[in-house]
């Protein structure tokens, strides 16, 4: 895929900041607007921008299709697993009070894990959706 020089230089400059912003939104979501959903979407958008400018083949080398599928499953499992941990510690499912010695710390830990699960899950799924469409196009164009 050939794209404009300006586009390539600007996006090369921007993409690290987009990814960094995604992590900021993820881990600062307790104190400011943001959280797992937004961070996941921004992370996916950064990689999609890379794919659009440098070609899908280049982005497949960095984040393969397989990784997005595994990531989507891991995200859901982190979320569900947090609930199972609180079950094992004798509380109800997804009751974070039992995760640490002190309920407020338990809540902090629980929210952190859950938001992490949501972030990984959403980022991977959004990228997976984009990859599904683009790889379908690649396969179809390759056949005709």
């Amino acid at each position: 895929m050939q794209s404009d020089v300006v586009l390539r230089v600007v996006s090369k400059f921007l993409i690290p900041f987009i990814l960094l912003f995604a992590f900021y939104v993820q881990f600062h979501g307790d104190f400011s607007p943001g959280g797992g959903f937004q961070a996941g979407v921004i992370l996916a958008a950064g990689i999609i921008l890379y794919a659009l400018v440098f070609g899908v083949a280049a982005s497949f080398r960095i984040v393969p299709m397989r990784a997005t599928q595994i990531g989507a499953a891991i995200g859901v499992m982190i979320y569900g697993g947090t609930g199972v941990v609180s079950l094992l510690r004798g509380a109800r499912y997804l009751d974070y009070n039992a995760l640490a010695h002190d309920p407020v710390h338990g809540q902090h830990l629980g929210i952190f894990m859950v938001e992490l699960g949501v972030g990984i899950g959403v980022a991977s799924t959004m990228l997976w959706l984009f990859y599904s469409f683009t790889s379908h196009k690649l396969r179809r164009d390759g056949q005709s």
């Binding site: 979407v41 959004m126 469409f133």
Partner: peptide, 20 residues
């Protein structure tokens, strides 16, 4: 609504895949 927006884009993607 926050979760509804994200779920909305996922279901839109399913609809578009069906259309394809």
């Amino acid at each position: 609504m926050l979760t509804a927006i994200v779920v909305g884009v996922a279901t839109t993607a399913v609809a578009l895949a069906l259309i394809v």
